[in-house]
Structures are given as C-alpha cells and as structure tokens.
Design a protein around this nucleic acid. Sequence first.
DNA 1: CTGTTAGCGCCTTCAG
DNA 2: CTGAAGGCGCTAACAG
Lengths: 359, 359
Amino acid sequence: MRSATIRDVAKRSGVSVASVSRVLNGAEAVTEAMRGRVLEAVETLRYVPHSGARSLSMRRTDTLGVILPDLFGEYFSELIRGMDLAARAHGKHLIVSSSHDDAEEAAMAMRSMRGRVDGLIVLSPHLDAAKLAEGLVGSLPVVLMNAAAVGTDRPCITIDNHDGASQAVAHLLETGRRRIAHVRGPVGNLEADDRMRGYGQALEAAGLESRIEPGDFTQGSGYRAVARMLAEVSPPDAVFAANDMMAVGAVLAIQEAGLNCPDDIAVVGFDDVPIAEVVRPALTTLKVDIAGTGARALERLITLIQAPATGALPESGPEIVRPTLVVRQSSVALQHQSKTVSSRPSGRDRNLRGEPHHA
Amino acid sequence: MRSATIRDVAKRSGVSVASVSRVLNGAEAVTEAMRGRVLEAVETLRYVPHSGARSLSMRRTDTLGVILPDLFGEYFSELIRGMDLAARAHGKHLIVSSSHDDAEEAAMAMRSMRGRVDGLIVLSPHLDAAKLAEGLVGSLPVVLMNAAAVGTDRPCITIDNHDGASQAVAHLLETGRRRIAHVRGPVGNLEADDRMRGYGQALEAAGLESRIEPGDFTQGSGYRAVARMLAEVSPPDAVFAANDMMAVGAVLAIQEAGLNCPDDIAVVGFDDVPIAEVVRPALTTLKVDIAGTGARALERLITLIQAPATGALPESGPEIVRPTLVVRQSSVALQHQSKTVSSRPSGRDRNLRGEPHHA
DNA sequence: CTGTTAGCGCCTTCAG
DNA sequence: CTGAAGGCGCTAACAG
C-alpha cells in the first residue's frame, strides 16, 4: 500500500499532474470546477505531497541545519529553542546535529547536509572547526556562532566574552574584593580563552595578581577547582567562573567548606542559564540572551539564503552581542547590599504566551 | 558556480555515472584503476553527494522526525539529547519540530514531514494529538511518547505516572506527613492527569483527605499554588508537585514565608531534571531516565522502520517506564534523616566521556 | 486555462 | 566489470 503520488491524484480526477500541482500550490489560476475535483481526489486518496521530491525539483528544502559540538546543559537547549522559534516563524524546518567534538566529525556532518538543507548554522568553539566551515561547505550559506570571527567578513554571531569578563571583575572590585580567582573553561575553547583573557587584563589593570584554575565547563570541575583553592593558605575572596554550571559547583564547594557565599567568598558566573536564578544563593552572572542569539543567527542565515534572489547583499561580518551583568545574591555581601534581593520567582518564566508547559 | 554533480564527476573521469555511483557507495566491485580516477575527480571537483536526490531514488532519507509540543525546560532538552545520541549511533539525522500546542498544528507538522523523514516520534500529552498521529500519518512509521496508549498496540513509550505519584505519597506518609497537598499540571495533559489520579488514590487508600491546587508545570505556578495554601488556616505539611519546576517554586514559596523545607513542609517533585539536584534543599523526586527514554523511543522507531525489510514484526504495544524515588533533602525532616545528605555534586555529570562541554 | 515534456541528482536493473 | 536507460515524485517552462 504505497502512498498516493501526484500522478494518482491526477488520474483519479482526470486532469494532468501539472494541474494538480497548480491547485495545490495555488500560484496560477484554475477553474473552480477543476479545483473541486482535484481537492476531492486528494481527500479520498489521502494524498500528502512528498517534500523530498518537491525539494529536488525546486532546489530548495526549506530546511536549515544546525551543527553543534554538544548537547549538554541549558545553554544549548536555550539556543535550539530560540532557533526553533525563529525557524517556525519563517516556515523552515530544523535539523540538528551534535556531538562533533573534533573537526573531522564536524566536517563529515557538514558534508552530509548537502542536498538536505538550504543553509547551516555552525557552532564552533574551536578554531579548526570554523576553518572547516569555510572550506568544506562549498556554496552552502553558513552562519558561524561563537567562532573566531576576527578578520573575516563571514556572517557570524559572537558574544563579547572579553568584555563580559571585564564586567565581572569590575563588579567584584567595586564590591570590595581583592583576591579574585578565575576558574576557566576548556583550553582551546575560544570563548573560554576570551573570558580568561578578559579576566587577566582587568586584574592587571587594577594592579592585582591573577589566579587561574583549570576547568571544563562542568559543575564538577567548578567544585573541584574551588575546593583546591580553599585548601590553600590564602584562599580567594571571590571567584569568577567561566560559566554558570561551574559557578554552581563553586558555590557548593564554598558551602561545603563551612564558608558563606557571598559573605566569605563571592561568586560570579557567565551565561545566565535558567538555573542561575533558582539556585541559592542566586547567581550573579553575565546574562547573554541565549535564545535571542540563536534566533538572530537563524534570521541572518535566512537573509543570507535569500540574498541572491533579492539582490540585496546581506550585511556581512561578525555581529557582537554584549553580555549584561545581572547582580544577584552570590556576589553581594551583606555590607554591600543596597536593595533587598527577593527570592520570589521573577518574570523569568519564558513561556511568554502563558500557556501550559509539558512536564 | 553550481556545485558539482555526479555527472560532472563522470565526465571528468571519463566513466559513466553508474560507475561513479559504484565506487562511491562501494557495494559492487570495480577495478582499481577506475576507483583511482573517480576518486581523483571527486577530489578536484570537490564533489559532495546530494542527499536529497539520493533519498528520492533510494526511497530512504535516513532522517527521523520528532514532533514536540514545546521546547521549554530541561525535560525536552534531555529528551532530545537522548534521541540525538541514539540517532548518531545509527547514522540517522534528526529533524525536530516543536510548539505544536494544538492538534491542528501538530497534524500540519506531521504532514509536512512526508518525504522528508523515514519515521516519526510524536510526543502527545494531549489525547487528540495521539489520535491524529494514528490517522494522518498514513504509512509513516510512528512511535508515540507519553500518550494514552491504553488499548492500542501501537508502539509507544510511556512513563508510569500513576505509579510514580503513588510512590511519592507513600514516601511522604512513611516520613510522617499527613496533610499532603498536590499541585497538579495543566488540565487535559495526560501525564498531569495520571499523576493527580495516582495521588488521589494513594491518599484515599490511606484514609486521608486530598487537597489539589491547579498548576501548569511552570515554576511560577508552583510558587503561587503553595503561597495560596500557606495563607490558609491549616496549611499542608507536605506538597507533592507534579513536576520538578513547580516543586522548585513550592520550595521558594515556603522559604519566603519564613518556613523551613523540609522541617515544616516537605516537598516532592517529579522527573528529576538536572536542576533538582542542585537546588537547595535538593529535591526529593521521581526520577525518570529522560534521555534514556528518548533513546529508547528512537531505537524502537528504527526497528519499526526496518521491520518490513527484516520480516520480523516488531514488538508492538506500549512500553512502560517506572520512575524511581530519589530521596534528597526536600522531604526528609531532621528527625527522619538516617544518613547524611551530602551536598557535594555527585556523579550526575552526564558527560560520560569526561570531555569538556561548551559554555 | 490546461496538458505535455523535460529535468532536479542520484541509484539500479539490465544488457553488453 | 562497465555503460545506457529508466525511474523516484514533483515543478516549471512551453505550447496549445
């Protein structure tokens, strides 16, 4: 019981396939009589167009690909959510491909996308991956995210990690901290590197010594890094973690050592994932509108794809998003608290339409 | 600058397109000489096969579709992660489509998948959506998730929500609670309904009165529900929330009222999303292996797709996953604590290979 | 307005 | 072992 094709519909309604295509795609004019007969045949045959065939003939898949290095944690889930939202708004499908740790695998994934998507969003926190995107993709439109965009005029959305880190340090300095340590992200990760550099320069500018512990963006690594430092003679009075998950780990390590966060040690994270607000003490962090960034990337990809048609050449080059400092409980010791910090859930509920969620 | 087709490669290497296809797909035998020439042409032309065309001719897309009602929160991100993992293991692509609140929209999404995917996983917490999947999909293999699977022999993965709720109540009773309230999920959501029924029956069996507050699975609704109850003359001494996010809201409401959780009021959630372990007090909850469930659904879909080929008829009917109670701090008052509850991050890090994550 | 025809890019019998 | 030819299901000229 093969499913019906356009030819079956044509036969059953006694018209040509072209006509069926016409009434279904509704561009050109057709008589009411024909429209009726075709629609009826479609109904009885339960005909559903084959989008694969359609794509081949139209040279357009209405599908966009997303290449991710990983799929863990709220960062990516937020990113995909934003992209999905934008994709739906433009009637596009989204095909996601993750776990491309090494460049080789990412290259493979990109190749296998050819003929399946109209364009690609590539998240490449590693240098080589970005390079690959340049070469291997061929004529497929690509928007890079969080890549090393310096010097290229390739469309790209990036977060100003350096600036974010500076803001973190500045905030800690303002609130009286002096021994500010940093738990960094994985070596070779462009974002982690930038955040570290931003931290280092800000400290240097303040004439203070920097102290950097390794980490890998996981909560566990944040915990261990801080636990190590607490065992030393002169522990820091503040920790700037390269992302929120590590900041959460840092807070736990502090609490477990019998110390108080923020009174004894302040903690600042990065990203402002949803969890940051719920944890106690709520995390001071650098908010980046993750979902918004994803949506923006997708929109840029779409204009990039449409560019040859519209004739308008799309704005090229990197687009840089500046994170904003969100001060919560984890960094403000009592003597510095100006206003009450409410623990009531704020308007952070992202279900803007107020509709019920799934479990 | 059109990208090269198989014909270009054939021409450049002086062989037929059939031969190019042969060396590239490597099924049949070819002379070394030819293989060399073809591969060289592929190289210089930077030829990448067009998977769309390939799909059309092979009647196989190697792509699976996932239809979700929503994309908020950790529940879905975990689910997708599990599916993605399984998909990669089988060399399949994943196309996700979300925000199908009403059945109409979901139906549309399913139709637009025809010719684009080899099968579908449909998450339908609403009855009608499940019904739609039955009819509209035609001959496309479908695996339902969390749907009303009773009575059908359609492949389906479901969580035993009723049982989970019973476990929650049993646990609270065992630890001495008597005035146990329930914050339910959205009306009409099958899972929310089942959890509520499980709660109701368990309380009834214990000869206690039930108390049900409305909610919609969001943290805010959990907060408000509990805040309402705390304002009454005889507030509960325990709250069973239909999911973890509402449980988090419940805890915040309790703390904000100046009460202690769990000493004054115990809280139990459902799902065990990653956040449940990090929040303070850590949430007692009903753990369901979300990612595992997603992976399982995907695997079942694959066997379903391969069924006609292998001849083996796939196991049909629902597959029910029983949640397991995870006792943490939010439900165990001091006088009931048997063993120390460590706040150290456990082995919950899901990065099993220990590789670095992205921010 | 409608039908005929030629592809979209690839795989796959079927002869040679 | 290799080439030629016929589709896969649909759209898009081009005639009528």
